[in-house]
Write a protein that binds this DNA or RNA. Structure first.
Length: 431
RNA sequence: UCCGUCGUAGCUCAGCCGGCAGAGCAAGUGGCUGUUAACCACUGGGUCGUAGGUUCGAGUCCUACCGACGGAGCCA
């Protein structure tokens, strides 16, 4: 009985008879030969059906296979220099598990709208498989980093009673005749968890109902958010750069093949090592002015501003101490200049923009209460959050990293919609 | 929400100054023992986004609406 193998393991079975279970990715025929490109999710391998080597019925079945037909095939692994894998399979027998006809995604070019309508099938394409594999590795690396640095995973709720930041538009749902909102960040809950466990992180989906229609926005996206007690802004920036360096280097180690198939230029990723350059908001403002870009001190940076700033450095850049007015209410004011917040953003290179936002949190009860009212927020839903400042309040800091933007950056993709299996966009709820 | 571009075969597109609806791929049939988005020959395939309007005549010109894409703003 032949071994059932994953195609990615084929090198271990040179000269042996094996069984592969997969789908027909593409087929080319030449009279008495059929070349079947078979994928099983791990890789794709060419399987050769020669009329002189198989039963007539097998050769006939091979001739009639449609794209994406499900097949279980048996054959001999053999080395072949012409194969990208270095191996191909000489077919002995084929079992047609399911005959597929008129598969919509042909080996020709397609438009984005059509491919998104067929996202459930598009995921079978080589390029999408490479992206999903990089994403999986990024997520694993993020978890490994925090798990191995003494952080505790604490899951934040998805239903929340009020806005976390008071800045963005939330999805409203009916929660047993009460209003509930889909979370836009787990951060406030992580602050509570940090006071309980010291070093914590959460990883989950977050939701924004903003009508953003750009290449860097989804209405549902995944964020990983560490929060640490007794940590200040300096420590927060140290953590962010150490974390990003780790994740990027892990992806380079484990997913080089996928990055190459995506034609990603590896050089900028290889330079992504700590320390990252750190500039203040005011320095960034001056840099923009020096470039002849109109920017008013006090305004947040736009997408184009971020790109110009990032292009001045060869690795991610940390911008710290933004004006408090353009940041969330819970940011701690800079004791050296009350107009500034002890916050920081990490801007990815090559125009990928903000991948991390974070900072030191306000830990004084009275100041936090004042900021809530300054932002026009009702204090009642935040009483539990204020309790954290009543019972053993300490300096603490954290940040959130957007997974999709990180995947887009590392894969070199022009749009975040391909970084998640089933993207949720302004105009996209299907499939 | 604002600005711009585009809606023609299953898919990607061409269709000029308004005059018979086209190509490639996919599908079907046949051919080829080493193909690499294989190739060659043949066949079938259309509510030209929707609704009005102008005209002898509209895929083509005009108006409105719908949808998609790109950008801005908002945000991560």
């Amino acid at each position: 009985m032949a071994d059932k193998i994953r195609i990615s393991d084929v090198a271990k079975f040179d000269g042996q008879e094996v069984v592969v279970e997969g789908w027909l990715y593409n087929k080319r025929s030449s009279g008495k030969l059929h070349f079947l490109q078979v994928r099983d999710g791990s890789a794709t391998i060419q399987c050769v059906v020669f009329q002189g080597e198989v039963e007539p019925s097998v050769f006939e079945d091979a001739a009639e296979l449609g794209q994406e037909s499900a097949i279980r095939l048996r054959g001999i692994v053999r080395e072949d220099a012409r194969s990208p894998l270095g191996f191909e399979i000489g077919v002995i027998d084929i079992e047609v598990v399911h005959q597929s006809e008129s598969y919509p995604i042909t080996p020709k070019e397609h438009g984005t709208a059509f491919l998104m309508d067929n996202r459930h099938l598009w995921l079978r394409s080589a390029r999408q498989q490479a992206i999903m594999k990089v994403r999986s590795t990024i997520v694993k690396a993020c978890r490994d980093y925090f798990d191995s640095n003494d952080f505790l995973l604490v899951d934040a709720p998805i239903f929340t009673p009020a806005s976390c930041e008071g800045t963005s538009t939330l999805f409203e749902t009916d929660y047993f005749d009460e209003k509930a909102y889909l979370t836009q960040s787990g951060q406030l809950y992580m602050e509570a968890a940090a006071m309980a466990f010291g070093k914590v992180y959460c990883f989950g989906p977050t939701f924004r109902a903003e009508k953003s229609k750009t290449r860097r926005h989804l209405t549902e996206f995944w964020m990983i958010e560490p929060e640490v007690a007794y940590m200040d802004l300096q420590g927060d920036m140290d953590l962010a750069e150490d974390f990003i360096s780790f994740v990027v280097q892990r992806v380079l180690e484990e997913r080089r093949t996928e990055l190459e198939s995506l034609e990603r230029d590896i050089a900028p990723l290889e330079r992504t090592l700590k320390p990252f350059p750190r500039i203040s908001y005011s320095e960034a403002h001056e840099m923009l002015k020096a470039e002849g870009i109109a920017h008013t001190w006090g305004d947040d940076f736009g997408a184009e501003d971020e790109t110009v700033l990032a292009n001045k450095f060869d690795r991610p850049v940390i911008v710290h101490r933004y004006p408090a007015a353009c940041k969330a209410f819970y940011m701690k004011a800079d004791p050296e200049n009350e107009k500034l917040a002890l916050c920081m953003d990490v801007l990815a290179p090559e125009g990928y923009g903000e991948i991390i936002g974070g900072g030191q949190r306000e830990d004084d009860l009275n100041t936090l209460q004042e900021k809530l009212s300054e932002h026009g927020l009702d204090a009642a839903p935040f009483e539990w959050f204020l309790d954290l400042r009543r019972y053993g309040s300490v300096p603490h800091a954290g940040f959130g990293l957007g997974i999709e933007r990180t995947v887009a950056w590392l894969c070199g993709l022009p749009h975040v919609r391909e970084t998640i299996a089933f993207p949720r966009l302004l105009q996209r709820l299907y499939p």
